[in-house]
């Protein structure tokens, strides 16, 4: 468990509107288990990551074991198993973007966010920068995903302006 996470702070996600949302989603599938990925997305949206208690809560709602849920969480790269910075920055560096200079974009983000290292959250908690495999926007090299938003055609010189536009 992460040092910044206190188990006592966890409050249930699936109450009120989120519970209704999950029930609506579950009605679309013939099995409860099929709602697993959507349920994990709701936990991440509400808590910023998927803590062990969130996995346990999802397991209970869908009649699964926490171990099974963890097995699924760890398979998919988009579920955060640890808290991340307020702005989670994913820079595509797969070949189509790589030949257009994506590594320079990564360097610029590391420098201007103060993260210095991939996957490490900046001291002020604002940023985490990672390299991501193909974002599926290769014609708009280099695409960068910041939380839920896409920024297309990013070059190193645009990075300071992009960062200053983030709240």
């Amino acid at each position: 468990m992460s040092a910044t996470h206190d188990q006592a702070e966890y409050t249930s996600v699936f109450t009120g509107a989120a519970r209704t949302e999950l029930d609506t989603i579950m009605s679309r599938y013939p099995t409860k288990m099929a709602a697993l990925l959507p349920a994990l997305w709701i936990v991440q949206r509400e808590r910023g990551w998927v803590p062990p208690e969130g996995m346990a809560e999802v397991a209970e709602a869908l009649d699964l074991t926490p171990a099974y849920v963890k097995g699924v969480v760890t398979f998919y790269t988009m579920y955060h198993q640890h808290p991340v910075g307020k702005h989670f920055i994913q820079v595509c560096t797969t070949s189509p973007c790589n030949v257009c200079g994506a590594e320079g974009v990564v360097d610029a983000f590391l420098k201007h966010t103060g993260c210095e290292e991939l996957g490490v959250t900046s001291a002020d908690g604002r940023y985490t920068v990672i390299e991501v495999e193909c974002l599926g926007a290769c014609g708009f090299a280099t695409p960068v995903m910041i939380n839920e938003e896409f920024v297309e055609s990013v070059t190193p010189d645009r990075v300071p302006e992009i960062l200053s536009s983030l709240k």
Partner: peptide, 12 residues
Amino acid sequence: VHVHVHKGAGAY
């Protein structure tokens, strides 16, 4: 005819 959208989670 029902159509539902299902969101993946990062796996090629």
